[in-house]
Simulated scan of single mutants.
Amino acid sequence: MAIVLGPNRYGKAETRLVHVARGPGRHALTDLNVSTSLSGDLAATHLTGDNAGVLATDSQKNTVYAFAREHGVGEPEAFAARLARHFTGALPTITAATVAIEQYGWTRLGPHSFQRDGGHTRTCRVTADGDGVTVVSGVTGLVLLNTTDSEFHGFPRERYTTLPETTDRVLATAVDARWRHLGDDADWAASWAGVRDALVEAFVDTYSYSLQQTLMAMGTRVLKRRPEVAEIRLALPNRHHLLVDLAPFGLDNPNEVFVAADRPYGLIEGTVTRDDVAAAPGQWW
């Protein structure tokens, strides 16, 4: 029996970068978490410990900081693409590079004062290889809630079913979305904001009979609104809000008092895509 090395990659995870663009009388703040991952002909370091073809992870970290100083940061997709293209040409042994970025939001309070946002996080993941550049943008932790216009009934009942049917429930989720772009050059800020707005508007506008139906409506709204997006993948945890039984206290509860249960929870996942667009190369979820 032969034992061989399988697919492998390595990189520097979670390089924290805060960049201050010091304009005259007004500063701009960018707060990122950058992870790099390289792959290629790396058998030697695994089999014999020969590191001649290895770009040290510390060098990858330093490149992130140096690029921020030399070229600025700008939109995370553009910054990630610059880094990914650089790493694929850094050594002959490196043939593919993936750069994943989380961007943390700050609200401006003054010319040089900011308050950290406590809401959702913008993400992107850019891969450069011999086939070109694949750009995936995203958002995570986008918490949405409808207090009504949501039902759930008509599901099969069997031995272990205790869930009551409902025609009026609270529907809440924390959206984790990733969307792949058709190209590698776009107005990234406008595109990301447009997708986020489409997701939110579809959630608000949809009278929901299931969270799956809402997922489809959200993905469809994005693809109709944003022609630069090839497909979108959504993970929607069902943040259950359970009606509290107030009868022991002599009180009714007409859908007003709930307990927010953090676990366990239903998790609805799905991809909404254009039928005339080729599937993405490799795995980008």
Rank of each mutant, 00 (worst) to 15 (best):
D131Q: 01
A128W: 04
A81D: 10
V64L: 03
T148F: 07
I94H: 00
A78M: 11
H86D: 14
D149L: 14
D117A: 03
T88M: 03
P111L: 06
L142I: 06
L145C: 12
T98R: 12
I94A: 07
Q103R: 15
G132H: 06
E70L: 10
R85I: 08
E75K: 10
R125D: 00
G132S: 01
C124S: 08
H86Y: 15
G132I: 01
L91P: 11
E77I: 05
S137M: 06
S113P: 08
R116V: 02
T98A: 14
L109E: 10
H112K: 08
T88C: 01
Y65D: 03
G72S: 05
T147L: 13
G141K: 01
R85G: 04
A78S: 12
L145S: 11
H71M: 11
T140E: 15
A96D: 01
T147R: 11
T147C: 11
P92S: 12
G130D: 13
A80P: 07
I94L: 06
D117P: 02
E102G: 14
L91T: 11
L144H: 10
A78W: 08
F67A: 00
G105L: 15
R85C: 04
T123K: 12
R82K: 12
A80W: 12
E75Q: 13
Y65C: 09
G141A: 15
A81F: 03
R82E: 09
R69C: 09
V139G: 04
H71P: 10
H86F: 14
E77Q: 09
G119F: 04
R69A: 11
F67E: 03
Y104R: 11
R85P: 05
A128G: 02
V136S: 07
G138A: 05
S137H: 10
H86Q: 13
L83M: 12
T93A: 14
R82Y: 08
G119Y: 05
V136K: 02
G105Y: 10
V99C: 05
R85Y: 03
T140L: 06
I94W: 02
V135I: 01
Q115D: 06
E102D: 08
E70G: 08
A81P: 04
T140C: 15
T121V: 15
N146V: 11
V73N: 09
T148E: 06
D117R: 11
Y104V: 15
E102Y: 02
C124D: 04
A84E: 01
T93V: 12
A100G: 13
F87A: 08
P92K: 15
V135H: 09
N146Y: 13
L91I: 14
T88L: 02
L91E: 07
L91K: 05
G72K: 09
V135R: 06
T127N: 00
T107A: 15
V73A: 12
N146W: 08
G74L: 13
F79D: 14
E70F: 09
